[in-house]
Design a protein around this nucleic acid. Sequence first.
DNA 1: CGAAGAAATGAATTACGATTCATATCATCG
DNA 2: CGATGATATGAATCGTAATTCATTTCTTCG
Lengths: 223, 223
Amino acid sequence: MAYRQTPAVEARLQDNRGRILAAARTLVSEGGWQEAQVASVAAAAGMATGTVYRYFPSKAELFADVLSAVSQREVDVLAAIATSDEPAATRLHSAVATFVRRAMRNPRLAYALIAEPCDKEIDAARLVYRAAVSNVVRTIVASGQAAHEMRDDVAPDLAASVIVGGFMEGLIGPLSPLNPRHPPGSGDSRRKVHSLAHDIARLACASVAPVSRARPLQERRSR
Amino acid sequence: MAYRQTPAVEARLQDNRGRILAAARTLVSEGGWQEAQVASVAAAAGMATGTVYRYFPSKAELFADVLSAVSQREVDVLAAIATSDEPAATRLHSAVATFVRRAMRNPRLAYALIAEPCDKEIDAARLVYRAAVSNVVRTIVASGQAAHEMRDDVAPDLAASVIVGGFMEGLIGPLSPLNPRHPPGSGDSRRKVHSLAHDIARLACASVAPVSRARPLQERRSR
DNA sequence: CGAAGAAATGAATTACGATTCATATCATCG
DNA sequence: CGATGATATGAATCGTAATTCATTTCTTCG
């Protein structure tokens, strides 16, 4: 017996893993999924291709981990908002607007993670993320309904799905074209981002606003 | 010169093209994208693999055409509703509910075309479809705003994106799991489908309902 | 019928990047 | 140092369908 893992080594291994994740994240955020190749990641992390496979069993798992790391942070932010003691509508507005604003801080990355066409396996990982976000929103809606601050004639899961789908789709347009890139540092005219966030959040809130008894139900129509 | 295209031949060619599209559509609607292989399509259409390439330049274009054919029908249906002379809210409700109901008639196909992870190239074609649907919805919203029947403090494009993203996401859950399959013919308890459609449509309508002056803006909370 | 060109065939080729693995290098410790 | 096992390397391999193309079969018309 001439080997037992040293803390120094363990640290290096840990660090390598982090470097791989960071490199992968950077590549995606710069070139989208097109650049997301295992060999490129390895090169960017300063190691050989095969080494990546000592840390991740497959490309799909590697990028699923990237997705999950980035996403978990967002979910945490939303969860914090969701559990604050504001009224439900306020929390919903804040959650949606915050999500939008944060996404707009790195549009290329957000676009890649949310909407850009990518490998089937990676795409599948998005479902988990969406479900997590949807779950936080469901929490808000459910509490709003319990407090009679939100319409309670729709299941909270359904309302949450619709809201999440709505604000994500609303984001895609502004994120996607990768239009005239703004000089780095200006992010995107603060004003525009802010008002986009506000608009999307208003739409989200409106969909579950309490039905005023005064204003008769909109659609009479059946088909 | 000993050849000039005969109408009979032209008809056969045309027919072949149709058979390929039909076979492709059937395969997707039965097995999702997993079954969507050029060789399978050829076999299902009763011809050799290479023949498919005499009609379509690539797999991606073939399936993009399938997508576009199916989608165009839906867009047409929506467009008809959009141009009826009902109030805007009625049209919106009807458009959304109709879309949902129709999608639920063939959940497997709808799921594949709307949400199932698939090839990058095919996924890209979905954007075109979504844009077309969104465009119809935009029309409705814009007219509703013009008639002061819908809130006009959001750009119609944005509202349309949010609405479309919302109802599509709301659909995915019910479509996706491919849960306990219902015996063919029952489609899915009519009642359930109908109420799902109604619920989703209500959420969509609510997001652009006019802001009642009485009830102060959403995130302020009335009291 | 048969020449000429069109269309169909399907086995073989290709493309492409993920994944492997024999080899080299590094870390530990007696 | 040198033995032992861990870790890293990166060129070679693999897997999977899409795509091609030399050959065959069908159509047209003199």
